[in-house]
Simulated assay, not measured.
Amino acid sequence: MNEPAELDLPVEGGTLRVLRFGNGPRTALAAHGITGSGMSFRAVARHLPDDWSLFAPDLRGRGGSADTPGPYGLDRHAADLCGLARHLGDGRPAALAGHSMGAYAALDAAARRPDLFDRLLLVDGGLPLPVPPGTDPDAVLGATLGPALARLGRTYESDEAYVDFFRAHPGLGPHWNADVEAYVRYDVTGAPGARRSKVREEAVRHDGRDLLTSAGLFAARLTGLGVPALLLHAPLGLLGQEPPMLEASLVDHWTGGPGGLRAELIEGTNHYTIVLGTAARTVAERFVALGG
């Protein structure tokens, strides 16, 4: 599969940059994580059948959609996914996937408009995160996304310096490959000598707070699913070590219930490599098979 075509497609209030992988008639949509981009799905797309096209939008505040105005939040991202599904519709529902934060947006989209989608693949995300009452969401974000937030506030002398920053990341550096490098290089922008991430920090903070305070909504969405759904989850977390993003007890609680969500642990992966490493083939295979 060749490098993606870059499209600017209409959504409420502007356009979203959408990366199109493949040229087949079968439409799939995939939503990325909180500081990611559509390039997160480069490896997964390569393993899809030739008759598929994977459309991976840069969500508002990220990538080529960095200047698309807010409001941000999971509700807005879900509405954008539904809008893209309508725009790209070929007379039949689209396949839908989401990784990390994108899994929550995809869950919301599939639950509110099941007529637009024929399956839902959640990748290391989508389950209500247990946050004790009275917890400050900003403190939780700082503890979990500290390195990522620090990256967004820095500038770098060159693209190579930005790449080197990611090479030192414990969850990515040991698993470096062409897909990881393409993902990193796609994210860099700015003037010479002051290169930086395309991701807007205010979007990350807004979406992160929304994610942490919307457990009730996600619970309702999971119990009322109207499409076949599968969760793929990693045994290791953001830094390539335990704990995982989704604890085993949390996965057990939300699978096999009224919504029909099933789950599969993808061994040997962390939160990033589940889509950017060799497991991308498995993710693609499960995505295709999920439709029956």
Results as ranks from 00 to 15, higher is better:
residue 1 M to P: 05
residue 3 E to Q: 11
residue 3 E to A: 14
residue 4 P to E: 13
residue 5 A to P: 00
residue 7 L to F: 00
residue 8 D to Q: 11
residue 13 G to M: 05
residue 17 R to M: 08
residue 18 V to S: 05
residue 22 G to D: 11
residue 22 G to T: 13
residue 26 R to I: 13
residue 26 R to W: 02
residue 28 A to M: 15
residue 29 L to K: 15
residue 29 L to V: 14
residue 30 A to T: 14
residue 31 A to C: 09
residue 34 I to K: 07
residue 36 G to L: 03
residue 36 G to R: 11
residue 36 G to P: 00
residue 40 S to P: 00
residue 41 F to W: 14
residue 48 L to V: 11
residue 49 P to Q: 11
residue 58 D to P: 03
residue 65 S to M: 11
residue 70 G to Q: 04
residue 71 P to T: 13
residue 74 L to D: 01
residue 79 A to D: 10
residue 86 R to E: 13
residue 87 H to W: 13
residue 87 H to I: 03
residue 96 L to A: 04
residue 103 A to H: 02
residue 107 L to C: 07
residue 108 D to N: 08
residue 109 A to E: 07
residue 113 R to T: 13
residue 118 D to K: 03
residue 122 L to N: 03
residue 125 G to I: 02
residue 131 V to F: 06
residue 132 P to H: 08
residue 133 P to N: 12
residue 142 G to D: 07
residue 143 A to Q: 15
residue 145 L to V: 03
residue 146 G to N: 07
residue 152 L to C: 13
residue 152 L to I: 14
residue 156 Y to K: 00
residue 159 D to M: 03
residue 159 D to E: 15
residue 165 F to Q: 10
residue 165 F to P: 00
residue 168 A to W: 01
residue 169 H to Q: 11
residue 169 H to C: 02
residue 174 P to G: 11
residue 175 H to R: 14
residue 175 H to V: 11
residue 179 D to G: 07
residue 183 Y to K: 01
residue 183 Y to L: 09
residue 184 V to Q: 02
residue 190 G to I: 12
residue 190 G to W: 06
residue 192 P to N: 12
residue 193 G to M: 09
residue 195 R to P: 05
residue 198 K to Y: 00
residue 201 E to Q: 14
residue 212 L to W: 01
residue 219 A to H: 06
residue 220 A to W: 08
residue 227 V to Q: 07
residue 230 L to M: 05
residue 231 L to Q: 04
residue 238 L to A: 15
residue 242 E to R: 15
residue 242 E to A: 15
residue 243 P to H: 03
residue 243 P to R: 02
residue 245 M to W: 02
residue 246 L to H: 10
residue 248 A to C: 00
residue 254 W to P: 00
residue 255 T to L: 05
residue 255 T to K: 07
residue 260 G to M: 09
residue 261 L to V: 15
residue 264 E to S: 10
residue 271 H to V: 12
residue 273 T to K: 00
residue 274 I to C: 01
residue 274 I to V: 15
residue 279 A to L: 13
residue 280 A to P: 06
residue 281 R to W: 01
residue 281 R to I: 00
residue 284 A to I: 13
residue 286 R to I: 14
residue 291 G to V: 06
